[in-house]
Computed example of a mutant assay.
Amino acid sequence: MVNPVLKWAGGKRQLLDELYARFPTEFNHYHEPMFGGGALFFDLEPADGSINDTNPRLVNFYKQVRDRPEELIDRLKSFEDPENEPNEDREYHDTNRKGKEIKNYYYQQRELFNRRPHDEPFDELEEAALLLYLNRTCYNGLYRENQSGGFNVPIGRYSNPDWVRSEEIRAVSEVLEKTEIHNRDFEYVREVAEEGDLVYFDPPYEPMSPTAYFTDYSAEGFGKEDQERLLELAQELDENGVHVILSNSGVMFEMYDEAGFHVETEGATRAINSDADNRDEVDEIIATNVAPEERGDIGQLKLQNY
């Protein structure tokens, strides 16, 4: 088991036992087309397969972790406390792109991180380092983009934030060594998943209510048409002999049940709030084409396959 490097909204650490309980007895390659923080992937430590995300900066981060872990760690060690004064040797030490005063180091780094959405030249290694730095020093560890694709989460309040995460980076790098990393639409998996493979889908959740939007992790969002495309793809993979497991919000129960999947409701606590008392439990579903009699023993799964 490897710990994820990033905090990520919608993470599945609390659903791991329920997800493993739906795993087939055996499978070949593992694919995760909506990766995010990758809680299941890093707990499973698959030997090979593919991961994908539509967020290009997140994908770049995992590529840098996989290919340049020591350089990434060195760059992270160069960063300063988020409350420090801005670095006068770098851009945005006095004002941001809109002319607003930059008061501390955190907001300067946030401006530097947002080079890509403003079509400015950027260094891939620095962008990856800044993603982790901001992730570990921003408010609640939240990743959120505005409609222009700019990361806009304010500074958090931490007594001793650890943004280097050297042990996690090295461990994650090893797990990713033989994994293909894509920055495409989730339907890419149609091209790579073969009979006997396992695909886990973890889409941005369909809202439980008009005010409960779980799709603000990127500027593009994930709407009704995307949910319908996802179901169609899951059905196609099922027809091709691919094992499929999918988690989603409770409002999607009927949709997958009517499509012939095995669907059950699970309670899960949202873990993106720094205050444990304010983490709400919401209904989630797990849908799969793996029949109960075809499922493996949760405690022995990894030993059988790896």
Rank of each mutant, 00 (worst) to 15 (best):
S274R: 12
A171F: 11
D238R: 11
S148C: 04
I272Q: 09
N278P: 02
R136M: 12
M1D: 06
P46M: 14
V251Q: 06
Y143N: 01
A276G: 04
R90G: 04
I51F: 13
E232V: 03
A128V: 04
L125H: 09
H93T: 07
S247G: 05
Y106F: 09
S159M: 09
K100R: 09
G267C: 02
Y306G: 13
F41K: 06
Y62T: 01
I285K: 00
E180D: 14
G37M: 03
Y139W: 15
L15I: 07
L231I: 05
R270A: 15
R157Q: 14
K224W: 13
A212W: 10
L131D: 00
F113P: 00
I73P: 00
Q14S: 13
I181N: 02
G156I: 05
A39G: 09
S274G: 07
G99V: 06
A287W: 00
P46K: 13
Y256D: 00
D119I: 05
N152R: 08
G223Q: 15
E258I: 03
T137Q: 01
N289A: 06
F201T: 02
N55C: 09
Y256K: 06
R144L: 11
G10T: 12
G196N: 12
H31W: 08
I181C: 05
E239V: 07
Y213L: 09
D283S: 13
V164A: 02
S148N: 12
E258D: 12
A219G: 03
K98I: 07
G49A: 11
Y200C: 10
E264Q: 13
E101H: 08
D257Y: 15
I51R: 00
D216V: 07
Y200K: 09
N84A: 15
E258Y: 07
Y133N: 02
I102T: 03
L131M: 15
I51P: 00
P154T: 12
L303G: 04
L237Y: 01
G149W: 15
S274E: 14
G11N: 08
G99Y: 12
R97N: 11
L142I: 14
V242C: 01
E168F: 10
N96Q: 05
L130A: 04
K63T: 05
L134T: 06
S159R: 10
N84I: 08
D43S: 14
K103P: 01
H93V: 07
E220I: 08
G49S: 07
E281H: 02
